[in-house]
Design a binder for these strands. Structure first.
Lengths: 348, 348
DNA sequence: AGCATGTTCCGGAACGTTTCGGAAGTGTTT
DNA sequence: AAACACTTCCGAAACGTTCCGGAACATGCT
């Protein structure tokens, strides 16, 4: 009835839906429907309300909406503590797609929270976010599926393991991208092609390895374990692994590094051994991070559409949140092979 | 009294504070006080409540808390659409510091929202976030101060303009960092030292320029406008600007690039002109991004403590939110000069 | 005994929104 | 003129917290 009691903090009291309703001479229910673009309101009333909203600079209180409607407009994104640029590309794609629907990203560092079962995700969802994007999640298949059964909505980006068909995921065409990269090397006459892989067991590693082996097989070459060393997707790891590869008895003439970090590490290892790239050694990477075209020589690599993966994940999630049905829960985005200066026809 | 009405969606009804209260045989208010660690509750009751909370996996509903208490536990971070790795370093520092206090970052893309005056920030604060971190904000001094007067809490990271004393900000010691870099070049015997600056008018640019000029002056050298070209902090810009610098009549023997992107661009420009680094040309950068030590030759640069800037900003913001008073609203973090392989004593 | 002082807890009123059920008003059909 | 359908709007009940004011009880002091 009377004015709402305020004067609590120094904080100025914000303009509320009630105020708009009074000024526009309608009920708060009507204002709500206008603001949320629902039907059931005449054009005249709608315009009038919108005018008042604009004049007073009203914006909906997301906490109140979250409480009342159950949806907060927030999407949680778990952030792995590796590969900042890989991650930020995905992030910017997702953020862009989300802001189109007036939704926002909540960052959820996944530090030491893996003590209690699925505690992070439970916390994530409970009154905080409508859904989540899980980047490189360490949760097991069972954990993820149990989450799914609890009614949580999320989509996995770049799964570490082969996921159950029911959990939505988006990834890149690792196998065919790797295949293409190695075929390129073969076409240049290389026969002894080493590889620096990611951690064994990671899906991205195994799929790329599959493409690598398949391409070798198509040329009648047996993979040689001596020139296939596992690493950790980091630059330092690439230096070390590249060194091991180059110190092998019968040195490879080309190296397929399973990501750009490893490739740049391998380049350093080669250089420190007096090898020229690409004259003495061809190198191919995977990712096409921003700096790949700016190293010397520019890196031949497989482009992974990271931002697009973020956007696609958002699109899947949105449809999940709207309870729409799905034709395919697993989406694999195409990669693109980019030839630059780090590969060359094998020298006689 | 009876069970709460549910069965609305397929969504499972979550465990609420009321449930915990009943199970623990105390009032809702008591549970709230336990959960929020406030006093006024006996050790026995506290432990009992905590046990029930643990058993049922209760977590507070942030929307409800936001509505009721006015604080949401969310901090908005505006993201400029440039320099992903620069930005992600700041972000990870801030995220880390915030998660220690169980607060979260909400990402706020600042695309085309600059139409209506301060609309982004108003939306940001209104029931959504407790405060904000503004990275490289394009808002004017007046806008920021008006926000401040409206009771908004925020801290600026890396301001673009000289800010009013009243608006809290954290930045790096641009001037002294630049000074140190140029003194290093001078000590190596360089006399003709060019510069690729950032956009004119940006605070970081002007401060670094100040340090650059001061160092030159200390060696009795007048800055030569012919070898000081402005660019945009991007790699492409560095290539272009570096080219201009190297095509000048009396070519500089060293280039101070105002960030690492520009430095790597300049390196490319030099290489495409057949110049060797560091033999024919010394190059210094600014930032020390991750890859700076992995380019060839490794980049001599000024390290900016980006993650620390994020943490510091959070610390300032936290104190602002707690209404604590301040000794200094402007914090400048020290930079560190790092000598690597891209600089060398000037050749005779 | 009477009184002040603490300690521990509870009741209940906000907080700002969404949404359900229904109430007016206006036509249209029977 | 009654019955019905449709459109447009409203009232009021949630949603799950926080926090103020005060109740109940124990304790210490006079």
């Amino acid at each position: 009835m009377s004015e709402p009691a305020n004067g609590n903090d120094g904080r100025p009291t914000r303009v509320t839906i009630r105020e708009i309703a009074e000024l526009a001479g309608v009920s708060i229910a009507t204002v709500s429907r206008v603001v949320n673009g629902r039907g059931d309101v005449s054009a005249e009333t709608r315009e009038n309300v919108q005018r008042v909203v604009r004049e007073r600079g009203y914006t909906v209180n997301r906490s109140a909406r979250g409480l009342s409607a159950g949806r907060t407009g927030f999407v949680g994104v778990t952030i792995p503590k590796v590969h900042p640029v890989y991650f930020s590309s995905i992030l910017s794609g997702a953020a862009e797609a989300l802001s189109e629907q007036d939704m926002r990203i909540v960052l959820c560092p996944t530090e030491h929270e893996h003590d209690r079962e699925v505690s992070l995700l439970e916390r994530l969802m409970h009154g905080t976010t409508d859904g989540a994007l899980l980047v490189l999640p360490e949760e097991t298949n069972d954990e993820l599926e149990s989450l799914l059964n609890h009614g949580y909505r999320f989509v996995v980006i770049d799964p570490l393991k082969q996921l159950n068909e029911r959990v939505p995921a988006v990834s890149a065409a690792n196998s065919s991208g790797a295949n293409q990269a190695v075929r390129h090397l073969l076409a240049l006459g290389h026969r002894r092609i080493g590889a620096i892989t990611g951690p064994n067991g990671w899906l991205a590693t195994e799929e790329r390895r599959g493409g690598y082996h398949a391409a070798l097989a198509s040329a009648g070459i047996m993979p040689d374990p001596a020139i296939e060393v596992a690493s950790d997707f980091q630059i330092e790891g690439g230096i070390e692994a590249g060194g091991r590869l180059l110190d092998v008895a019968e040195r490879p003439t080309a190296i397929f590094a399973f990501n750009d970090n490893l490739a740049i590490g391998a380049m350093q290892a080669a250089r420190s051994r007096g090898l020229r790239i690409p004259e003495d050694l061809s190198i191919v990477g995977f990712d096409d991070l921003e700096w790949a075209q700016h190293v010397t020589p520019a890196l031949t690599t497989v482009r992974q559409p990271l931002a697009e993966m973020g956007r696609m994940a958002v699109s899947l999630l949105t449809r999940l949140l709207d309870n729409q049905s799905f034709e395919a829960l697993h989406v694999e985005l195409a990669t693109r092979f980019i030839v630059r200066g780090s590969t060359q026809r094998v020298s006689a």
